[in-house]
Every structure is written in structure tokens, then in C-alpha cells.
Amino acid sequence: MVLQIGRVCIKLSGREAGNVCVITDIIDNKFLLVDGNIKRRRVNIKHIEPTEKLIQIKKGANTEDVIKEMIKNKIPVSYWKLKKENLLNNEIVELYKQYFGNDWEKVAKSLGSPGKKN
């Protein structure tokens, strides 16, 4: 699988293992900048598993843009992430409702937070 900006991946190691992330920038041949259901951070290429999904974002897209595109592509985002990044605004809530229905909050909360088991 080609690692490119917008590629949806699964984090394989660390406290955020198993969470979905999106490549926002390619730093060099060993490190990537990722965001999504994890804290925006630099990760080693060996610590992520790319999926077939690809979303349309610009290089270095901010967290809000990444979250909006994830929701538009029916990739749920955790309530923890929305609250921590102060993104529980009307626009994102309406997007969530549009793609996940009125039970959006239940879907978002079911993802839990990084490092904690549900």
C-alpha cells in the first residue's frame, strides 16, 4: 500500500494502538505526521498499517479539516478527540448527524479514548 497524504491508517503500537489515523504529511523516509482519532504527532512508518481508504486533504491539513473529511468518509471520530480539540461545534455535529444519524454521540463515545480500554 502506498503511503501518501490522506491515506487512512491504523496505529499499531503505543497507547493509541488500534486507533484510526490519517497521514497529513510525509516528513522523511522513516517518519510521518498523522492526525485523526489520535493526538496529532510524528510516527515511525513501522508503527502504522495503511488501509485501502484515501481521503482528500491538503498537505499539512489542520485537525478540523482532517476530522471533517473523516466524518464525510464515514470514519467515526471519538468524542474524546472532538472535545479535547474543542471541535464540538455545530458544523461538525451536523456533519456527524448527516453521516451517522441522530445516534452520533453514542457512536463517538463508543470509540473511547486513547490508552483506555472500553
Rank of each mutant, 00 (worst) to 15 (best):
L33D: 08
V66E: 05
I48G: 00
M70K: 05
K53Q: 10
L54D: 04
E49T: 11
I45N: 04
R40V: 07
V34T: 03
T63M: 07
E69M: 11
N62I: 11
K74A: 13
E64W: 10
L32T: 05
D35V: 01
P50C: 08
K59F: 10
I71V: 15
T63A: 10
I45H: 07
V66M: 07
A61C: 01
I48R: 01
G36R: 06
H47L: 11
I38F: 04
I67V: 02
V77D: 06
I38A: 02
P50G: 08
G36A: 04
I48Q: 02
E49C: 13
I45G: 02
K58W: 08
I55P: 03
N44M: 12
I75G: 02
K81Y: 11
K81C: 09
N62S: 10
L32W: 10
K53H: 15
N44G: 11
K81G: 08
I55V: 09
K72H: 03
A61Y: 01
H47M: 13
W80N: 06
R42D: 02
I45L: 04
K68Q: 00
V77M: 03
I57W: 08
E49D: 11
I48P: 00
T63C: 05
R42F: 02
H47N: 15
K72I: 03
I67T: 00
V34H: 01
P76E: 11
G60M: 05
D65Q: 15
Y79T: 03
V34P: 02
V66N: 14
R41K: 15
Q56S: 11
P76T: 11
E69F: 10
W80G: 03
I67Y: 02
N37C: 11
I45E: 08
Q56T: 08
E49M: 14
P76G: 12
N73M: 12
L32N: 04
T51E: 12
T63Y: 10
